[in-house]
Design a protein around this nucleic acid. Structure first.
Length: 818
RNA sequence: GGGGAAUUGGCGGAACUGGUAGACGCAUCGGACUUAAAAUCCGAAGCCCCUCGCGGGCGUCCGGGUUCGACUCCCGGAUUCCCCACCA
């Protein structure tokens, strides 16, 4: 028999055939009516890609395959699975790349999308190509603009001048969230600060709700924690420190501080203002304090990296002004230092050098007094401080609160400050309002018109979309305004309210706004008269399972949660959390390091798919490690799944009619149980291992299988190798797509039971033998069989049996001694 | 500085609720088939020792502990990775 006849599996032709048939038959696509009527709908979502010029990389394929396996599994179980895909094509990524290669993004993006589409089809994802979303399509961003207007009308979008992060390289403002350790998230350039009028979404109003809901989500704990930490709720107090003049008289000005340790207020020996604090301007404006001005000016110029690293050496200047510490009545100096951040709290702190590490360093550097107000267990009020003490203990040098334990002191002192009228309990969040303005070109124009008399007016809905004009020179410059501000014929317009000459907003919106609601659009993607259809949305949302990368576990998820809540509050949705279940996949690395061009370890997927086929590639990616942890890509490793799929093909092709062998049938049912348990838990690597093991049993000794033995395996492998499974299903004589109809094999516990068990025999916890007994052998039988083992008997010889542990079906442990 | 995750053969990784550590696969070695090679199939294999046995010892980052029994639980430590970071 020739090799050809033995093994007719030619992945490329099988895959081509089924991709064509899926397309022709509309296997994965839904009509509007089908979406409306779907029974048991299951919305399987994955994070849509940014269509880069390089094409899909292994990381994309890994993520999509893992999500696709999940979707295909649900479908095999009988769910109606909607699995859409789209393109997140606006944003700085695309714009920068377009600038680099000198092609207009409007020309570049369509060809990238086309290339991605080809690759996505090639890997055999179960995508509904009739519901694709492209964020750069006016038919989509029209509704992104609509969403902006909804927030604008609800008072949740506001324009305010604010210190913002400015990337001198990208020449744009960045959200706080896009500043990573003081550097631009995209290009790594040190970020500077500027003050510009910006559009903000008031996400902070939702901070508490965003935090409270986390508990009810079926998300991994790490993602939940990341969200909670980002929101960063802290409880403490806001205290009011009166400013006093040289004679100690109050000037009428107070400095507000936020602290999580109001109980240490007796130890506040000086105040610190952030260089950006409004009061600082007053100080400098009066021209009285030249060193102050110089310091503030320097701080403003200093980029955040230098400001934050600076090997933690504190810098600052005294303002020459004073406050009164309302707890002690003492006059304390006011300083300016850049270790205090304007973005957090009130931009001013009471410095308690005795019990705050940063304040301690500062006090040491500038020779400011340090007072102990907390004493640890072995300390008293006079124990000197070599460093800030932040541990447990009791208050000292704190007037009426001496002796109060720190476990209750925050609450007590806060109550007291409130009674005295100079403080109140205060909850503070780290979360900031979401700055959505971008002084760039490649994004949806913010749909606002500025009118001299009417102010900022939203563009009427019937005038949407505000189309992004084609501008050949779309380079940003350091003017701090969008390139659109150079296109007079575009920005000149009429005020929608009064009809006077007016000017369009020339900023475009953040990409996170595009991606903040795309999942709502998908099922309604074919409606052009509404952002989303009410009935279809009620049927399909919220998303059942969302799978994506950890890099979006904070921002994207938080923003889309926020937008969903807002839409619910405005009556457009009847749910407020967008994703029931979210799982983050791991990272594929190569040679022990993250793939990157600079390391030269990037795996290009196309040639691998060419050589082995999409099914093998998919199966290998899912096999190389736990999906949620990722794994190391080793080119040789693909041989395992490659051989497995070929052997499966071969076995099915040879399988005849007949009755299953009981031993084989048992293994098959044990495998069904295992795989059915593990796929929903994303245990893909172990599922594949179980199927390999099963196939090894089916083929043991070179026997030919019968169809009933292999058919369940064909179905179970289908999520991983969908083309192969379709083909084998057909060759087994079944009609239609394997994915239509609930074809997942039923697990029969009866058939999975072993009638014999192998029991480990230990003596003093060490394995000495194993015995095989019937599964319901009595304890006495098991023990006598155990004692009969020569090696066991030898170790029991001459020793007293103190105890015998018998775990039925597992082991026997003889505990012996002299 | 804070938070999170991890550490198991040559390698990727398995191991239910505390119950035979190393499943499955890669690479390796041996055998079959072949004129030969590839492919395929069958088999071996954690490390060490030995009287070579159905033998013994050691072994899941390190040091302690709990337990009849610990990769798994507790205490202490080391290393690596990720995220955040002067958040008052």
């Amino acid at each position: 028999m020739s090799q050809e006849a033995q093994d007719g599996y030619v992945p490329s032709s099988v895959e081509e055939k089924w991709q064509r048939l899926w397309e022709e038959r509309g296997t994965n696509a839904f009509t509007r009516e089908e979406l409306e009527r779907a029974e048991d709908p299951y919305y399987n979502l994955m994070m849509f890609p940014y269509p880069s010029a390089e094409g899909l990389h292994v990381g994309n394929i890994y993520a999509f395959t893992g999500a696709d396996v999940h979707g295909r599994y649900q479908r095999l179980r009988g769910r109606t699975v909607f699995e859409p895909i789209g393109f997140d094509a606006f944003g700085i990524h695309s714009e920068n790349f377009a600038l680099k290669v000198g092609t207009h993004p409007m020309d570049l993006i369509p060809s990238n999308v086309e290339n991605f589409t080809r690759q996505l089809r090639r890997i055999g994802g179960m995508f509904d190509w009739s519901h694709v979303v492209d964020t750069t399509d006016p038919a989509y961003y029209r509704w992104t603009q609509w969403l902006f207007l909804k927030l604008f009308d609800a008072g949740l979008a506001e324009r305010k001048e604010a210190p913002v992060n400015w990337c001198p390289s990208c020449m744009t403002v960045l959200a706080n969230e896009q500043v990573i350790g003081g550097e631009c998230e995209r290009c790594g350039t040190a970020v500077e600060q500027r003050r510009i009028a910006q559009w903000f979404f008031r996400i902070t109003e939702y901070a508490q709700r965003l935090l409270d809901n986390i508990e009810s989500l079926d998300w991994s704990d790490t993602t939940k924690k990341a969200q909670a930490n980002w929101i960063g709720r802290s409880t403490g107090a806001q205290l009011h420190f009166p400013v006093v003049d040289a004679d100690g008289e109050e000037t009428g000005t107070t400095i507000e501080v936020y602290t999580t340790r109001p109980d240490t207020v007796f130890g506040a020996t000086y105040m610190v203002l952030s260089p950006e604090h409004p009061l600082v301007e007053e100080v400098t404006d009066h021209g009285l304090r030249i060193p102050v001005y110089a310091y503030v000016d320097k701080a403003a110029k200093k980029d955040l990296v230098a400001r934050q690293k600076a090997d933690r050496t504190k810098t600052g200047v005294p303002t020459g002004g004073f406050c009164r510490n309302p707890a002690t009545g003492e006059r304390i100096p006011i300083w300016i230092a850049d270790y205090v951040l304007m973005e957090y709290g009130t931009g001013a702190i009471m410095a308690v050098p005795g019990h705050d590490t940063r304040d301690f360093e500062f006090a040491k550097a500038f020779d400011l007094p340090v007072v102990r107000v907390v004493a640890g267990p072995d300390e008293d009020a006079d124990t000197p401080l070599d460093e800030a003490y932040v541990g447990p203990g009791r208050l000292v040098n704190s007037g009426p609160f001496d002796g109060t334990d720190v476990s209750e002191s925050v609450e007590k002192v806060t109550a007291w400050t409130a009674e005295q009228g100079w403080g109140e309990a205060k909850v503070n969040f780290r979360l900031h309002d979401w700055c959505i303005s971008r002084q760039r070109y490649w994004g949806p124009p913010i749909p606002v018109v500025h009118c001299e008399t009417c102010g900022s007016v939203g563009v009427p809905e019937d005038q949407l979309p505000v189309v992004l004009p084609r501008v050949e020179d779309f380079r940003p410059d350091d003017s701090g305004v969008s390139p659109l501000a150079r296109v007079e014929e575009w920005y000149r317009t009429e005020c929608p309210t009064c009809g006077a000459e007016a000017r369009r907003e020339t900023d475009v919106s953040d990409t996170f706004l595009d991606s903040g609601w795309y999942f709502i659009r998908y099922p309604s993607a074919d409606f052009d008269d509404r952002p989303f259809d009410e009935a279809i949305t009620r049927k399909w949302l919220p998303v059942d399972t969302y799978i994506g990368g950890n890099e979006h576990a904070v921002l994207h998820l938080l923003y889309s949660r926020f937008l969903t809540m807002v839409l619910k509050d405005l009556g457009h949705l009847d749910f407020e959390e967008p994703y029931d279940t979210f799982r983050a996949h791991g990272l594929i690395i190569a040679d022990g390091a993250k793939m990157s061009k600079s390391k030269g370890n990037v795996i290009v997927p196309d040639p691998i798919i060419e050589e082995f086929g999409a099914d093998t590639f998919r199966t290998y990616l899912m096999f190389l490690g736990p999906f949620e942890e990722g794994g190391d890509y080793r080119p040789q490793g693909i041989q395992g799944p490659f051989g497995f799929l070929h052997r499966l093909w071969d076995t099915v092709e040879r399988a005849g009619d007949g009755v299953p062998d009981p031993d084989v049938e048992r293994k098959v049912h044990q495998t069904i149980r295992q795989v059915t348990d593990q796929i929903p838990a994303l245990g893909y690597n172990t599922s594949i291992a179980a199927m390999m093991e099963c196939l090894n049993v089916v083929r043991a000794g070179g026997r030919d299988a019968v169809r009933a033995e292999v058919e369940p395996l064909v179905v179970m492998v289908a999520p991983f190798a969908p083309h192969l499974a379709e083909e084998l299903w057909e060759r087994l004589g079944r009609e239609g797509s394997i994915f239509d109809g609930a074809n997942w094999p039923d697990f029969d516990p009866q058939k999975a039971v072993d009638d014999t068990v192998e029991i480990a025999i230990q003596v003093n916890g060490k394995l000495r033998a194993t015995v095989t007994t019937s599964k319901d052998a009595s304890e006495a039988d098991v023990l006598s069989a155990a004692r009969a083992e020569e090696n066991v008997a030898r170790h029991l010889q001459g020793l007293e049996e103190r105890r015998v542990i018998h775990v039925p079906g597992r082991l026997v442990n003889f505990v012996v001694g002299a």
